[in-house]
Design a protein around this nucleic acid. Structure first.
Lengths: 115, 115
DNA sequence: ACATAGTACCTTGCACAGCAAGGTACCTTG
DNA sequence: CAAGGTACCTTGCTGTGCAAGGTACTATGT
């Protein structure tokens, strides 16, 4: 059972993340390469975009098969090996395009939300 | 077939709409009551939030069973009767809450996209 | 040498909103 | 009384996010 009074905020935020998490990950990878657990930690820092491993691994897998990111295995200074992800040129182009779509979209929603 | 070069934008935008269309509809209903086809037309005006009847009718049905909106049948000056939707107090509270979540979320995405 | 803990990888099954396409009924007009 | 417009609604599919569960490698303590 949940908070029945209004609307569970968890679910709402989860829906909002749809379609954006991938591009936020790509934005991070555009600066420097990272591995999956690192990405999870950095997303968790911005509360609204917190996404667990169950979201990140399938997401990275999709980005990879779409050619948006490239991967490379590297040994860790302490622990099991890590798979590092970096943004490809195709990924960079896709991200650039998203920036425009995001602005258009968020401006539209802002318009509706302003009373 | 589609544009294979990068990413079909249609699909991206469709994902972005998730979770927001409902609240945009509620925002409209917060000002004055409207019927479904009217809502479809007003959303279509803001291109980024265009949603067809296949989206709107199930959405309104959900909002209704969640107690966010109330409905009332009214005769049309010309044509079949219309079902008018209006925002309930519960809907108003939920919308108010969403405004905060939306700001938090869009600020977070903006942070990632700036660079 | 071996158990324990920590880190990192990944998969499975489900939930649910948006959507295209298809279908019914009412009213007006010629 | 047929044709066209308006308004209602449903069905089946898709894709993404998520919790939960599972494997493997390394370091540490005894």
């Amino acid at each position: 059972m949940f908070d029945m009074s209004t609307d569970p905020p968890r679910k709402t935020m989860s829906q909002l993340r749809r379609g954006t998490v991938g591009y936020c990950v790509m934005a991070l990878l555009g600066r420097r390469e990272r591995y999956a657990v690192e990405l999870v930690r950095e997303l968790a820092a911005h509360q609204a975009l917190a996404a667990g491993q169950g979201t990140i691994y399938p997401l990275l897998s999709r980005l990879r098969s779409d050619g948006m990111v490239a991967t490379e295995w590297k040994e860790s200074p302490s622990g099991p090996p890590r798979r590092y992800y970096s943004l490809t040129d195709k990924g960079r182009a896709s991200l650039e395009r998203f920036r425009g779509e995001w602005k258009q979209f968020s401006d539209a929603v802002d318009t509706f939300m302003e009373d």
